[in-house]
């Protein structure tokens, strides 16, 4: 007879909320024609300790004034906000950035391919894995090669009768090249504009107004030199190489097709 006690409700809900560990990412998303599926398959996740640059906690928060559930018109609770956010996640991203996931709703364990506008407008293909989902928040971790090593958590809560939505990133630049762009203010500005636009789009979806506030905290001012070798996985570099060699691949296909 086993003496292991039955799992509690909290244990069960935790097991449903968390993704299962896997050594390497596996892309199952159907990628539309013209999209780039690079720098995700076979990569490992990196937590903030495994990146190179200074570590930052950036919190983007919006007070949603009079949010309403679009389908019913009733006042939206934090659970309604998260339900809508999970179901429509890619729709809230700024134009020109794409999130390709295998399912229509954010689910634990999903691997999504991201096609982003990188530094200088260059297309950048990278990804995320959904590591945690419950009724009030969900979180992503980034893979090797992403601009940032770390975790991003999307949440909603009620405070003093007001409903808030929040994006909180615990991140550091993945490698010295990204850190240089970050220090130049390029990547940080892109990140701030990206999540501000996302929260404004979320607010619009719920018919709410509000102002996004940003709180930035340096968690670790040091560089993690042991992670300098991460540059080998730099998704911007590999996406750039892929983009500039596209004509060569096209010619190669034509030539091989004639044979």
């Amino acid at each position: 007879m086993s003496s292991t006690p039955p799992p509690s409700e909290k244990q069960k809900s935790s097991e449903q909320a968390w993704a299962k560990p896997s050594d390497r990412l596996n892309v199952e998303a159907n990628m539309p024609a013209g999209s780039m599926n690079l720098n995700v398959q076979g990569r490992q996740l990196n937590n903030p300790l495994q990146g190179f640059g200074q570590m930052w906690q950036k919190t983007y928060r919006i007070k949603l004034i009079a949010p309403r559930v679009p389908a019913t018109g009733k006042a939206a609770t934090p659970q309604d906000i998260i339900a809508g956010w999970k179901a429509n996640f890619p729709k809230f991203w700024p134009r020109g950035n794409n999130f390709y996931a295998p399912l229509t709703e954010i689910q634990p364990g999903e691997v999504a391919v991201l096609n982003l506008k990188g530094p200088g407008g260059m297309p950048l293909s990278t990804g995320v894995r959904v590591i945690y989902v419950d009724d009030e928040q969900f979180s992503f971790m980034t893979p090797q090669g992403h601009m940032f090593a770390g975790m991003i958590t999307f949440s909603s809560e009620q405070e003093a009768g007001e409903v808030y939505a929040q994006v909180q990133a615990l991140i550091r630049a993945s490698d010295p090249a990204y850190e240089a762009f970050f220090k130049l203010g390029i990547i940080g500005k892109m990140e701030d504009e990206f999540w501000t636009a996302t929260l404004n789009n979320l607010a619009s979806y719920y018919g709410a107004s509000g102002q996004v506030e940003l709180k930035t905290q340096c968690v670790d001012p040091r560089w993690n030199w042991g992670a300098a070798k991460n540059i080998w996985h730099n998704a911007a570099m590999w996406s750039g190489i892929y983009t500039v060699t596209t004509p060569l691949r096209w010619i190669g296909k034509k030539v091989s097709g004639k044979k």
């Binding site: 809900s13 909320a17 906690q57 945690y132 928040q137 979180s139 958590t153 949440s155």
Partner: peptide, 17 residues
């Protein structure tokens, strides 16, 4: 430990730093 969510994991990272 009764429950830990992803924000809890983030706290452990900042504590570790």
């Amino acid at each position: 430990l009764e429950y830990m969510n992803s924000s809890g994991i983030g706290l452990l990272v900042t504590l570790l730093i």
